[in-house]
């Protein structure tokens, strides 16, 4: 099955300076892919290309199988886009913002009113419906903008640094909403500077550096489990544990495992419990080679794929 968002060989340059140099990325339905990278890495350019807002120079972007260059209007019916700055008009009331996008999505009458009311509830703005959008907090505007981008039931949600400048509560609320959308089957591409939040919400992460996709991988991070011995038995127990994607022995004198958890597995607790139940002595468990480490390695030039 093809991914909901497919980016192949995406290339673009501003004034002769390459910003994207052949990026390949796929976001399957129901998955959140976190896009991280330093300033100028090309994250926003990639988002704009996927949102039909950039006449990119090379490669292809397909949304739900629709080529964004050949059929931009068709692609726009399949994407929901939340730009870096919350795209809501400050001179409209909160409900009017939603009502506009609901009408644009083709909703009418009682159905439109119901969907707008539902969206206000989800955005936790039911009691602020009659307030000018410009008077809402940044977090409230971001949630409003995200709901506004969803009325046409897009297959792909593009979120360009949606939590930038939000307080912790607003950030959590927005990320919960993102996760809920993914669980409803929407493919989400989310860019952020905050590695911890990407790791927390994304099923996979992609590190963009110097216009290239330096690495794509499991956003849940990996775990390092140090044992007192019996490495082979520990490998077998860990491989049989639920929520484990890959288990490898760590090279070195200390007997240790490297675990890669499957999407949806919160942490290594279940694996550790199985190891302990099997009578194995676990000395230390800690995140190993997580997003932060991979990001540093890429950005500092340690490695790139």
């Amino acid at each position: 099955m093809s991914a909901a968002l497919e980016i192949a060989g995406l290339a673009h340059a501003f004034g002769g300076r390459p910003v994207l140099a052949g990026v390949d990325l796929a976001v399957p339905a129901g998955r959140v892919v976190g896009l991280v990278g330093p300033n100028g890495a090309g994250k926003t350019t990639l988002m704009r290309a996927a949102a039909t807002l950039l006449d990119f120079h090379g490669g292809a972007v397909r949304v739900g199988g629709v080529d964004v260059k050949r059929d931009p209007a068709g692609a726009r019916r399949r994407i929901g886009y939340l730009p870096e700055r919350a795209g809501v008009r400050p001179d409209l009331l909160a409900w009017e913002v939603l009502d506009f996008f609901a009408e644009v999505a083709g909703l009418a009458g009682a159905e439109r009113r119901r969907r707008v009311a539902d969206a206000l509830e989800r955005a936790e703005l039911a009691d602020r419906a009659g307030v000018l959008a410009g008077r809402l907090s940044k977090g409230q505007r971001q949630r409003l903008a995200m709901e506004a981008a969803l009325f046409h039931d897009p297959e792909v949600l593009l979120l360009d640094e949606p939590t930038d400048g939000l307080d912790p509560d607003s950030r959590e609320a927005l990320l919960r909403a993102v996760r809920a959308r993914a669980e409803a089957g929407v493919a989400v591409l989310l860019s952020s500077h905050v590695l911890g939040e990407v790791e927390g919400v994304a099923d996979e992460t992609a590190i963009l550096h110097g216009g290239r996709l330096a690495e794509a991988g499991d956003g849940r991070g990996r775990w390092r489990v140090v044992l007192r011995g019996e490495l082979e038995r520990a490998l077998a127990v860990a491989r049989a544990a639920p929520g484990v994607d890959r288990v490898e022995p760590e090279p070195g004198e200390v007997p240790a495992l490297r675990l890669a958890l499957a999407a949806g597995a919160p942490d290594a607790a279940e694996v550790v419990a199985r190891l302990v139940e099997a009578g194995l002595a676990v000395v230390e468990v800690r995140p190993a080679d997580g997003l932060r480490e991979r990001y540093r390695a890429v950005v500092d030039g340690g490695r790139s794929a």
Binding site: R48, L53, P83, P90, L158
Partner: peptide, 18 residues
């Protein structure tokens, strides 16, 4: 005005016909 407010990109990327 839309560009100044930062609302134009969201409008252009919406299903609204140009």
């Amino acid at each position: 005005g839309e560009r100044e407010r930062g609302t134009w990109a969201a409008l252009l990327a919406s299903p609204a016909s140009r």
